[in-house]
Design a protein around this nucleic acid. Structure first.
Lengths: 226, 226
DNA sequence: TCAACTTTGTGCATGGCTTCACAAACGTCT
DNA sequence: AGACGTTTGTGAAGCCATGCACAAAGTTGA
């Protein structure tokens, strides 16, 4: 059988979503020179239950030592491998307005596994400008295989109206992983992954809970007067 | 009993997370002059199953008409009320680097329910600068009740190291809804809601699936050779 | 008024995720 | 070497969310 459970078994989505958090915390521990952690300690640092952490990690394989815990460096490496961060993922950003600029300058990219290789925008005022040492190009060049390095992940930071058209072009260029910051639902063929990050959705969810708290604490006016 | 099921019953988190999407789509339909939609149509536009949409909406109350569908304007209003968007939520942004600037300029704020009332940063080079007609102030002024309007929601757009300290100040100032863009786990007292938006987490999840696709499509080397 | 058609709201079954609880496994100390 | 304390890995149970299928309720047309 395969030596690597991460490739053999199916890792639940809920687990995959937590792995980056584990990895971040482990990296910090490694920097601090901590050699090993128990599931209890790591779980507390991340804000989950220790049982959940152990079950999550069990999907990757068996990297803990009973009675001791997990070796920080080893576990960080295994999570990196499971997430695919041992290879380099070339990223392109489309839409270089305020958000696109902020994303390109964001330090989170360079740190591990991701590398920005291209910036696109059709606004003539932006084309040619250099951000983090990369020139902004018109989107049409995306299709030119000779002009553009291979791209694994496309980031959409355009206004909502343009998002679907940009998405279609990215998919047409063979990109099958898309991170969408535009407040729009994208339709893509099967096999293409889209993840959406939306500021106003998050704010609205916060508003819902804030309202609930306000109603519960203070004036539950209409609710109590049967 | 109460007339408003949204206040009476508990709405599942999974449903709350989808309501903003429904609302966005309904708003677009309303702009286009569409008077009513069936659950089938709306669900297709949002990308969910119609049964799920109906079950979600049933948690808010019974606003559909059998044989016809939902009145677009009415349903949009009811979702707005459930989410608490009929009131105004004053927002403060802390950390006015690239990301903070982009967020402040982001049009998603002004549209509905949210209003930026304060910008904070301790960098002397930034203090005093005006963004969207609001002056950036040092964080210390947050505690000065006379200098700052009431704030419902705090947005953290600082580097990770500063996030917990900023969070503590926000909580100290009575803010119980926080949107965190910094890659850090925040610990807060009970009753405070924190939602995190993290670029690198999203990229890493995409990388995981991209790796899976790459392995499945091409070289499934180690996996097949039992 | 009544029959035919459409669409909602929901009970029920299904599936996945989380939590519990404990046996197995490891290190340590005598 | 053997007993003891600690921590992992995992079966089992419980919980929440999703999807199915249909009765109830409404509209339309004759």
């Amino acid at each position: 059988m395969s030596a690597d459970p991460a490739l053999r078994r199916e890792i639940p989505d809920a687990t995959v979503a937590r792995l980056p958090e584990y990895l971040r915390t482990l990296s910090r521990l490694a920097e601090d020179g901590v050699p090993s952690v128990s599931s209890e300690e790591l779980a507390a640092a991340v804000g989950v239950r220790s049982a959940q952490l152990r079950k999550d990690l069990s999907h990757l394989g068996s990297y803990g030592v009973r009675g001791v815990g997990y070796d920080v460096e080893t576990l960080a490496l295994e999570i990196s491998r499971a997430l695919g961060l041992t290879e380099d993922w070339p990223v392109a950003i489309v839409g270089m307005g305020n958000l696109g600029h902020a994303l390109a300058s964001y330090s989170g990219f360079v740190t591990k596994g991701f590398r920005i290789v291209a910036l696109f925008d059709d606004d003539p005022a932006l084309v040619g400008e250099r951000v983090v040492d990369i020139a902004i190009r018109p989107l049409a060049e995306l299709d030119d295989k000779h002009a553009v390095d291979p791209i694994s992940i496309g980031v959409i930071a355009t206004p909502a109206q343009a998002a679907q058209a940009v998405c279609d072009r990215l998919v047409g260029a063979g990109i099958s992983s898309i991170l969408n910051f535009a407040p729009a639902v994208l339709s893509v063929p099967a096999g293409v992954d889209v993840r959406r990050v939306d500021l106003s959705t998050e704010l609205q969810i916060l508003a819902f809970h804030a309202q609930r708290k306000a109603l519960a604490a203070g004036h539950l006016g209409t609710a109590v007067v049967s």
